[in-house]
């Protein structure tokens, strides 16, 4: 495989998105990082700083709530960005009138979506790195980080983001809606997947749902490796569960996508 479609799509996306306004893009990155951190900090100050109880420390293994919420927010930022790009890729082609010319070509969908994903991964990594710099003065601490475990967590995170994006992309292409579907998903993930507080605080039925969204596992893995310094073997069940659930999303995404492409093409009518 020479990954022509992947590399081509990567280049196309970079050119269409960032060539025209590189400066706006850079400033946008810095600002997103800044706002994410500020949001997390305010949530900490307003809601949790004085109400911190011992159950939080028991559940999470740390009493450093600020770092807890910062890591959660950055993971969430990464998910949102990935979904925005990968999920919307085909519906954007539809809106810009290139879906048919694209679908005329005999190309591999996996590479197309991965190309879209990679663009976003590159740019969001920049955003997150800037955010981390911003977060240091607020008191995020990396003294316990387990690097190997962290890197693996990132890989698993990207895989699960990809799966979720594919499923969301199907919904978008099928309903031709990008607003309601996306914001419902984001709000839901934000509330139930342990982004700003442990999902153990939720009613049991919500927690069951949260268990079937791989983000819950992803954010736990990242926190464990960054804040608690847990190694790879110590959390093998979470790794395996998260990978399995993500795989289910990836598979459902690809199977449904073929059907959704057909439906989208049937609905094109000038």
């Amino acid at each position: 495989m020479d990954f022509k479609v992947l590399r081509g799509t990567l280049k196309k996306e970079l050119l269409t998105k960032y060539r025209a306004y590189p400066m706006d893009f850079f400033i946008g990155n810095v600002l997103t990082g800044f706002y994410t951190i500020l949001g997390a900090y305010m949530m900490y100050k307003l809601l949790f700083e004085r109400n911190m109880n011992s159950s939080f420390a028991n559940l999470t293994g740390t009493s450093d709530y600020l770092s807890y919420v910062l890591v959660g927010s950055l993971t969430y930022l990464f998910l949102v960005r990935t979904c925005l790009n990968v999920s919307r890729s085909l519906i954007t082609e539809l809106r810009e009138g290139t879906l048919e010319s694209l679908m005329l070509a005999p190309f591999r969908r996996v590479e197309y979506f991965l190309g879209n994903m990679l663009v976003q991964t590159l740019t969001t990594t920049m955003e997150v790195m800037i955010s981390v710099l911003v977060a240091i003065p607020f008191g995020i601490s990396f003294q316990y980080i387990h690097i190997g475990s962290f890197l693996l967590a990132i890989v698993v995170a990207l895989y699960s983001f990809f799966g979720i994006s594919m499923v969301l992309g199907c919904v978008m292409l099928f309903t031709r809606d990008t607003y309601i579907s996306q914001n419902t998903l984001f709000a839901f993930v934000f509330l139930v997947c342990g982004i700003t507080f442990p999902s153990e605080y939720l009613p049991a039925w919500l927690r069951t749902i949260a268990d079937f969204i791989p983000i819950t596992g992803v954010v736990t893995l990242i926190r464990n490796s960054v804040l608690l310094g847990k190694g790879i073997s110590e959390q093998s069940t979470i790794w395996i569960n998260t990978l399995l659930i993500s795989t289910v999303y990836v598979l459902i995404g690809f199977i449904l996508m073929q059907k959704c492409e057909e439906v989208a093409l049937e609905k094109i009518h000038s």
Binding site: V5, T9, S101
Partner: peptide, 26 residues
Amino acid sequence: IAGGERMIYWRLTAYENLWYYGQIYN
């Protein structure tokens, strides 16, 4: 080829358009 102005990427140059379609047609 269809009439009208669709089926090409407006934000890319003419060369980049043909290059991209060349990639997905292998």
